[in-house]
Design a protein around this nucleic acid. Structure first.
Lengths: 264, 264
DNA sequence: TCGCCGGATTGACGTAGATCAACCATTTGC
DNA sequence: GCAAATGGTTGATCTACGTCAATCCGGCGA
């Protein structure tokens, strides 16, 4: 069903998972590690948003390692003991929840600047699986140390609460989508939402390539892949978008937005 | 569509909303207010769980007021500025998110010991509406003060993170339900989940009265009221449960559980 | 006590999206 | 450079659930 993926949980691998364990070339120097929030382009979208340089330095000192994942590698799996949050520095991941009977549902699509792993704090175990959709790099934020540091840095503490809370709000809007929207509305919301997220990250808000398959998008939206495929085709026919496999161009965002909340 | 409800947001009313604003009888003495976590039966399920008596006292001193709501009153509405979390002390509430076009989706069903309002932290505004399903009492936890106190009381800080995280995990499992389960599975999960929550609160896990209408349950589960009604009837025919309006008795929880994840 | 009204039930029927299936287009591995 | 796998499209059909509508029930106010 899903491709076999390498768990990287207990031993974060530096370097490509498909080459020798310790490959000299892609290793990042300690000095780089120490300063990466300071110089990271996602600084103002990520956990250190709004912090002053001195505070950022303290966050930096806490960031343990970066983990590199090849497409298909898992960062953590459901049931793994929780020890850290992860900030996506490069690439993208999907998170999936799974029922006892093996059914799987994509619960999130995460790109740079996103913090993932938040659902593990409450139970000391990760409740879902995080899987790289392309070659990806994440910063490891050991949670206990983060909690300690947050006590000394009120703005950091506040950011943490905010990230958790925003995730809740996001989930609620997905529940609204899954519980009461028709298929075409769901896909429209999905595209609009992606557009907005790319815009905030400085990318084109009208042209992007999806990193998920039709099946994964379908799972995320509570639909089957055929339905997703048909809708892409229909949206294209109607001149709303242009699709070529995973490359999408939004042609009429206004119409796309109007489509949401429309009868029939 | 929804019954007109009284907003109580900016001015928490003490006493019944349908009697005079300040009714002498139901007023709670300051002394009672000061000690209510200490003596509250939900202490170990609620925010102060695991705290020592001294720490609980500090939490107590922060709890502003209690708010009493009549059935149908709203505690807050989408768009209201966020200032506090609320702990349900008595009764129950539903929370609903609404789309721009007015569509409404029940996003939560909250009972004693639950903390609500968590989705407001991230944006300074409440993202949903909270409505009392029966006569209800909640403790007001001013969030700024809570944040300050959490810095001094690491266990409280941790509990806060845990509550936020658990809400995320809960939402994920609802997304799984809405995205990939059939109608009968959804209702079974709903009943099993309720059963478990009542059990933890010391109530019967097999006999309870629902506080939501068929329509509200349907909205929560992404179904129409007729479907919910039919399923209740079918479950009864099949000997799984006994229903009489909102009174439900679970007769065969094992079968109910087996039903989840079954083909056809 | 009666009549009303909101909620619940049940039936007949319609439909959005699932399922099944064939086929095409890329990518990947030998 | 070919074969095989993986992902995507499109059509035909099926079905779970929604929609519409009639009826019932129980609590509450006059």
């Amino acid at each position: 069903m899903t491709p076999p993926a390498k768990p990287l949980t207990s031993q974060p691998a530096v370097g490509s998972a498909r080459t020798v364990p310790i490959s000299p070339a892609p290793v990042i120097s300690i000095r780089d590690l120490k300063t990466h929030c300071m110089t990271c382009s996602m600084r103002e979208l990520c956990l250190p948003m709004g912090l002053n340089p001195d505070e950022i330095r303290q966050v930096d000192s806490l960031v343990g390692t970066r983990v590199r994942l090849k497409k298909g590698d898992s960062l953590y799996r459901a049931g793994d003991t929780f020890s850290a949050l992860y900030a996506v520095r490069l690439g993208s991941l999907k998170t999936t929840v799974l029922a006892e009977d093996g059914r799987e549902q994509v619960s999130g699509y995460h790109m740079l600047g996103d913090i993932i792993g938040l659902d593990g704090i409450g139970s000391d175990r990760h409740g879902c699986q995080a899987l790289a959709l392309e070659d990806t790099e994440v910063c490891v934020l050991p949670f206990e140390r983060l909690e300690d540091l947050a006590r000394d840095l009120p703005p950091l503490q506040h950011n943490l609460y905010q990230f958790l809370s925003k995730e809740i709000a996001r989930d609620h809007s997905i529940m609204l989508l899954l519980g009461s929207m028709r298929a075409e509305e769901r896909l429209a919301v999905f595209l609009i939402n992606l557009s907005e997220r790319y815009r905030r990250r400085g990318y084109s808000s009208t042209e992007f390539v999806l990193r998920m398959t039709r099946e994964e998008i379908g799972s995320y939206l509570g639909l089957k892949l055929e339905t997703v495929s048909r809708l892409f085709s229909r949206f294209q026919e109607e001149g709303l978008i242009q699709v070529q496999g995973r490359a999408v161009k939004l042609l009429d965002i206004t119409a796309l937005k109007q489509l949401v909340g429309q009868r029939g």
